[in-house]
Amino acid sequence: MPTSIQTTGRTSWRPYWRILVAGFRRQSTYRLAALGGLIANTTFGLLKVAILFATVRAAGGDLNGYDIGTISAYIWISQGLLGSVNLNGRSDIATRIKDGGIVVDFLRPLSVQAASVATEVGQSIFALIPRGLPTVSIGVLVVGMNVPSAASGYLLGALSLLLGIVVSATTVYLVAAAGFWLVETRGLQILYMVVSGFFAGLFVPIDLFPNALRIVAECTPFPSMLMYPVDVLSGRVVGMDALGLVGLQVLWLVLTALAGHLMTRAGRRKLEVQGG
């Protein structure tokens, strides 16, 4: 393979790919943790099945557009994504910004933001193997659920899922980057944790929310992390509507990534001026 000579200012993708792979590998050492996560995901899944199936039946089989098959798909896909989508607001980079280790990261010829997001995404993609796929399989085998009927649905679903993972990483990065100015980001992180799950539609699909609350949720990046990928992957939303959701995800990705970029630049300048 010919080695490309990098010129300053133009960065290659390779280091980020390496970082992503390293994040993936690191997770693979925590097998017991993954098993524990799978048990937790499945148990919560079964409890959600009980209460949400009962709700669909109480609503006469049609709960605001959800039937048994689609609500089951919603439950198991969202439970499966739980290990991959960051809904707790914690990240390694937050610690590094807080304890000043970030200064070392700035010395590397890499974008701090991109490297951090790549690490998180690598770990998240790995988590699909021991947690995501088994959880969904259990749902399919034990309870049964709707799946997309066409191959295009799977393709768009995979893209939507990947976008969801990346949007959660770029948004969590914003929480961490606030640490350039705040002494303590724990409050922000906790706020993220409390709000994200609810607005991402983790316990109740946002289509069941009262209108005002649903609009509030749609004004945040959280539905892009979980709700939209679930809707696309389960085939509940198809065709142009599905493309629309993916478009929204891309929009949130651009917005959060841009915000993170600006915050990183300003934060770096602040460190340079104040000497850390």
Binding site: L32, A33, L35, G36, G37, I39, A40, T42, T43
Partner: peptide
């Protein structure tokens, strides 16, 4: 130890 999440279930 590492599998503490199992009890969270």
């Amino acid at each position: 130890i590492d599998g503490a999440e199992a009890t969270n279930a």
